[in-house]
């Protein structure tokens, strides 16, 4: 269910590396826990993000949560589509519902993240 070629954080973000660009979003488990997403606040291109630090926030009808960056780097793009249609995060968290694209400054940080298998184990008892 969670794509195998992605890496995962304990805060339920995923990251997918495409060449020298890392795409970041939240997991299917996270969107299920949040319920209907109604608002996403993302950084502007050019902003710096740091591994394990908040880079934005997400509001569902019920609650608000911080978004944590899986990697350190510079924001190249924020997904305009989730601004105008936040429900994309619920309907397609791993593709259309991505949040930001980042140019990572240290790809070795990926090694500290969970594999899909480890993440599946991590959320099993939640």
């Amino acid at each position: 269910m969670n794509p195998e070629d992605y890496k995962y954080t304990q805060e339920h973000e995923w990251v997918r590396v495409e060449g020298d660009v890392a795409v970041v979003g939240i997991t299917d488990f996270a969107q299920q826990q949040l319920g209907d997403v109604v608002y996403v606040e993302l950084p502007e291109p050019g902003a710096g993000v740091e591994q394990n630090q908040p880079f934005g926030s997400i509001d569902s009808v019920k609650t608000a949560s911080d978004l944590y960056s899986p990697l350190t780097g510079e924001v190249l793009e924020a997904n305009e589509n989730v601004n105008s249609d936040p429900a994309l995060v619920n309907s397609d968290p791993y593709q259309e519902g991505w949040m930001i694209k980042v140019r990572p400054s240290d790809v070795s940080q990926l090694d500290s993240l969970m594999t899909s298998e480890q993440y599946a184990e991590y959320i099993k008892d939640m």
Binding site: G35, D36, S60, V61, K62, N90
Partner: peptide, 11 residues
């Protein structure tokens, strides 16, 4: 139960 299918749909 906090939700069944989705809060907006239930609302």
């Amino acid at each position: 139960p906090v939700q069944y299918t989705g809060v907006i749909e239930e609302h």
